[in-house]
């Protein structure tokens, strides 16, 4: 596994680590359509899990179920043993953050402000404190700003702090989205096609960033279409087809499974981005 990226430390075997995210029997139906059909997954600390599947396989829908944007018809999602509340903002507070397939930054805010919004759920100033502006408020503002700048530096956007998000290059926007998600202090980070639309150099950089995040102890779940990327990156891969879990295993196992190849070739020939 570590052959492709020799300079990265291979992740420790998952067995020795604690389960952080445990989704069991998740089913999502829209009317007669079953978009996610009884999918279960466990994710451990410091692990990168890939989620693949042809277009329309229900990957993003599954993400939405995990993050509380959809309430699953059946099944539960647990984070460190606690069942997640059915509301996105509370899921974030519990420790799960995400990025979006089609970038959803706050375009008219600066990069720094975007990341500061991510700190919202980890700060507590309410109306009165904000109006009175006591030392506690100022300390918190200061800390928020410092942490946001630190995260921008972390993803390599330290110099772009004052740029409006909409004015930033595409690859930077993707990284900014990751910084914003990291600002919520997540234990699990969900990345929805983090390299979509990137050139090879940017993809390479994104991969290093994700390794760096993994090494800091976070669990990362990645949806990707770029197979080379996913097989280099991930410790474990799940393949969804028509909403159902087809196979789960190491990248090698999944890569060589004839059913996976058949699902891609038979179901949808192209591997274009976007569902």
């Amino acid at each position: 596994m570590s052959t492709a990226v020799s300079h990265e430390m291979p992740a420790a075997p998952a067995a020795g680590r604690e389960v952080v995210l445990d989704a069991s029997g998740v089913i999502m139906r829209f009317g007669g359509l079953t978009a996610v059909d009884n999918v279960s997954m466990k994710v451990h600390d410091g692990e990168i899990v890939g989620l693949i599947g042809p277009n329309g396989a229900g990957k993003t829908t599954f993400f939405n179920c995990l993050t509380g944007m959809y309430i699953p018809t059946e099944g539960t999602v647990r984070l460190r043993g606690e069942v997640l509340p059915p509301k996105p903002s509370k899921v974030v507070k519990a420790g799960m953050a995400r990025t979006f397939q089609n970038i959803r930054l706050f375009g008219n805010m600066t990069a720094l402000e975007n990341v500061m919004v991510g700190r919202y759920c980890r700060t507590s100033s309410m109306a009165l404190t904000s109006i009175i502006r006591g030392p506690k408020f100022r300390r918190e503002e200061e800390a928020t700003r410092a942490r946001a700048q630190e995260l921008l530096d972390y993803v390599g956007l330290g110099k772009s702090a004052e740029l409006l998000a909409r004015n930033m290059p595409y690859g930077d926007q993707r990284r900014l989205e990751i910084a914003r998600a990291l600002a919520t202090d997540p234990q699990v980070l969900l990345l929805d096609e983090p390299t979509a639309g990137m050139n090879p150099k940017e993809t390479e950089e994104a991969m290093h960033l994700i390794f760096k995040i993994r090494d800091s102890g976070l669990a990362v779940i990645v949806i990707e279409h770029d197979m080379r990327f996913i097989f280099t990156l991930c410790d474990r891969v799940l393949c969804l087809v028509r909403g159902a879990l087809l196979i789960e295993g190491s990248p090698q196992e999944v890569q060589s499974d004839p059913r996976v190849i058949e699902a891609y070739i038979g179901g949808d020939e192209s591997q274009e981005e976007g569902e």
């Binding site: 903002s89 919202y120 914003r180």
Partner: peptide
């Protein structure tokens, strides 16, 4: 929706 997904209590 992005705000909600970033933990803002909309």
């Amino acid at each position: 929706r992005a705000a909600e997904a970033m933990g803002v209590n909309v």
